[in-house]
Design a protein around this nucleic acid. Structure first.
Lengths: 334, 334
DNA sequence: AGCGCTCCCGTGAGCGTTCACGTGAACGCT
DNA sequence: AGCGTTCACGTGAACGCTCACGGGAGCGCT
């Protein structure tokens, strides 16, 4: 099929098909995009010739002339992380209803890859939405004027939009829930690996203060179930009187759940657990995870919506409209 | 920034930048792709002009002339299904190392969407990788000559490549494992919703026969954890003497695990469970799921590899090379 | 002075499509 | 017969960019 002669196998163009079928380019184009103004028999003849030659239209040439097809780049650190999976799925769905194409880039949790991706992506897509950790300067430099929507991150320059995650009220509700159940010693398994303490920890701290709870029982956890388990062990070793934990996210919470079982603490009787994110995953474990739940579907959809507004330039949402609020969703683990 | 006058806001082209900077198109091109043969000061001047005008190169025009950038389309039924998540992540990674771009299409488990996607995808990507349920005729008709690699599906025409999943040996090992543990009444929770019985059930049947086990204790399950739980209940109601179950996949197995706990059956003592797929998810539950594990990483990588071979036309793998074998991976659930 | 070299920069062509026209043939009508 | 209309098809241009050239200015060298 493919001739492997020494010379470069020149691409089959619409011209070749036209010549082979004895018609003009335009007629070929008409046949392929089945438009009017073409006779049935010649159409068939053209189609046959195209198939015969293995002709495939160039998406670039086509895209150049009809400026439809918008493609947006979705950048996430790790598709295997269920949180990003859910966001990505939501974004894909939202894009699909608009007929947009989404190129997904998984940066493998590497800052280096993120920058590399950013560099290459800009020349390949019309707009970018993603979860970035790099500096705004780098973003500014590498996106080169493309519309950008940041997820779950504050931004300080006007160049970007970002979807803010507001969990303050939800975390307060979670603490209130625990307090109402009689818990007074409430620990937190935070996400470490970041330089500064997480915003979620701040929410926890203020909520705890509001209820007169000691907010100092915090242990850093690796971003994994095993990390959550290990952190719980550390926490309980240091503070055996802890009866409830709030975690940075559901992955860590699930690890804690598992570890609690291994330690012989039954949930929620001996230990109450509340996670953050509200992943579907949390419904699979026993007992179902209580969580300060984020509407990941809305998160993805909102990001796509805003990117569309930026693309057309009409009526982009301001910061007020770009918020997703997390709410306490009781499962059985607290 | 964007003028919303009545007229269509014509795109800013390289020509506009050239005029604004008082140079030629070529010089602009040199500045942007930072090539040699350009003076430092003019380069800066061009860059400034480009930023000023909000210039963004057209990926179509660029792609048209330099025929690099290959884009492949990845079609999956549901990104939220962990199996497809893992395959997709593996494919993304494999593509990334090659510098390829991957457009992901989630068909929302709908045959209709699948066909629609197939139709639109062909003009947007260089090759297609995916998990399809439609007929080969439809595939043939809609892919229009693009290289196609099917995942986990047999094919009968020479037009396509497909990665075959071979779990025969793995399922036999699973049954052997159960038999060695003294189980004689082994049920199966199959995937229903398909017309014909699954190939995995066939593997189970032949393995059971080899060990003199009744292979008739099969219940169809919905493709979800809840479905798995419901199916287990049905199975145990009909055959209370069942002490072990093999399931169509890990999702169903996890549902069964959860249901067993609710029924007061402890795993693996009162009920042994072995799933299929070997998802990472299986390690999160308690006890960790035993499973006939597929190397999803290899699955995705292999698909990308083959699509690359088809693209270049050199040395495409035959059916023998396109197999991923599933192997029993003991957890704690059996 | 003449030659050659390097450094910058510009010009024409071409990538493969589609769009807006133009055109000839065939047909029906008054 | 003359005219308008439809049908089927072809021709130039344009989309926005890069590549392969060509060429002038400035320099040092013999």
């Amino acid at each position: 099929m493919v001739s492997s002669s020494g010379t470069e196998p020149r691409r089959v163009t619409i011209h070749d098909v036209a010549r082979s079928a004895g018609v003009s380019r335009q007629t070929v184009s008409r046949a392929l995009n089945d438009k009017d103004e073409i006779d049935g028999s010649t159409k068939q003849r053209v189609l046959d010739a195209a198939r015969e030659l293995g002709y495939r239209p160039s998406r670039f040439a086509r895209g150049l002339v009809r400026q439809d097809t918008t493609t947006i780049g979705l950048v996430i650190p790790d598709l295997l992380n269920p949180f990003f999976t859910e966001v990505a799925a939501a974004a894909l769905e939202a894009a699909r209803t608009r007929g947009w194409h989404v190129v997904v880039y998984d940066t493998a949790d590497s800052a280096e890859e993120e920058l590399g991706t950013l560099q290459v992506i800009t020349s390949q897509v019309d707009a970018v939405v993603g979860y970035f950790r790099c500096s705004e300067d780098d973003l500014e430099r590498f996106t080169r004027g493309a519309p950008v929507v940041l997820i779950g991150r504050e931004h300080h320059t006007a160049r970007f939009s970002s979807i803010r995650i507001d969990g303050e009220e939800g975390v307060r509700a979670a603490v209130a829930h625990l307090v109402a159940r009689g818990h007074r010693r409430i620990g937190m398994l935070d996400h470490d690996g970041r330089a500064e303490p997480s915003i979620r920890r701040e929410w926890f701290t203020t909520a705890a203060a509001a209820y007169g709870i000691d907010a100092g029982l915090v242990v850093g956890a690796d971003q994994s179930a095993d990390g959550g388990g290990a952190a719980l062990r550390t926490l309980l070793a240091a503070h055996p009187d802890v009866t409830a934990v709030f975690t940075f996210n559901d992955i860590i919470a699930i690890g804690a759940l598992r570890e609690a079982r291994r330690l012989g603490r039954s949930v929620p009787q001996d230990l109450a657990v509340i996670g953050f994110d509200g992943l579907q995953l949390g419904t699979l474990v026993e007992p179902p995870l209580s969580s300060v739940a984020l509407d990941t579907r809305k998160l993805g959809a909102l990001a796509i919506d805003q990117v569309g507004r930026l693309l057309t330039g009409i009526d982009p949402l301001g910061a007020d409209g770009l918020v997703v609020r997390a709410e306490l969703r009781p499962g059985g683990s607290a």
